Simulated scan of single mutants.
Amino acid sequence: MNAQPSTSSSITTGDGVRIAYRFDGEQGLPVLLLSNSIGTDLHMWDGQVPALTEHFRLLRYDARGHGASDVPSGPYSLDRLGRDVVELLDALGLQRVHVLGLSLGGIVAQWLGIHVPERIDRLVLSNTAAYLGPPQQWDRPIAELLEAPDMRATAEMFLRNWFPAHMLEGDNEVVEGFRRTLLATRREGVAGSWAAVRDYDLRRTAAIIPNPALVIAGEHDTVTSAGHGKELAATIPGARFTVLPTVHMANVERQAEFLDAVLTFLTERS
């Protein structure tokens, strides 16, 4: 297979925040936007790029507060995170894309299906939920993170929530990559994103998403449970639902099964 061309750049949003993005794959293919979880950057999808670029031109981006994007202080809102994507699509002249989002990325993808469904073709909502309340449960973790001396304790908490125990033993190269990203992420970005999760509730509005949707859940996910996924799939009209034997990072832990589910859904004829 020939090497796929890639380009990296950034845009500046209406509120002055620089959002970094990257294209991979051949021009002329349908565009698939990938949206990340909290505490990661666009490289969380690196393992899936070769298979996905056989079918799509990939558009990856670092959410505000993460990676090479700016890190504004204070709480973020889901509306702002969603508008970041819309402004990115506008700046790139993209009228309609597929969207694959995991965790917070899946929440942003739901927002897009609710507010700008005409910009979306198909939605894949992985390891995510329409609601992660009650809201007050997030206040203490946000405060403690902002008071912490660094990201070390939070990084280990994320890794325990993301991966099965056997992947955390020894020197797993993939896990170490996620650890490095977490340790390099500024606390303000994680805390601001947690505030967006604290304040959102799409349990009713997800019912107006008109786009074809696939919901993927992890059987052993303790962050966004299989129950959360089942409820979300039941809310979105006509949504499909599949459960993989994973914890939270289904794309990493069971890459082959994850890609099979995603590609089967995105490439089938209407």
Score class of each variant (00 low, 15 high):
R80G: 03
M1D: 06
G229R: 05
T128P: 02
P5G: 11
K230I: 00
R64I: 07
E147K: 11
T181N: 03
A207G: 08
S6W: 07
R83H: 13
V252N: 00
Q136N: 10
L89A: 10
A184T: 03
I209G: 00
Q48H: 13
H55T: 10
F178K: 03
A256G: 01
G65W: 06
H220W: 10
E219H: 06
W45M: 04
T181K: 04
N172H: 14
Q136H: 14
L202A: 13
G74V: 12
T235Y: 11
L168V: 11
W138E: 05
H220G: 00
G133E: 08
E231Q: 13
R64T: 09
H55Y: 14
L159N: 06
L146F: 07
R140H: 02
S103D: 14
T7W: 11
S6T: 13
V108R: 03
R160I: 05
D221F: 01
A226R: 10
P50D: 15
I38H: 05
Q255R: 15
P135E: 13
F265D: 00
E257Q: 14
G218N: 04
H55G: 03
V174H: 09
Q27I: 13
I11M: 09
I114S: 03
L42G: 02
G229N: 04
L89C: 09
G106E: 15
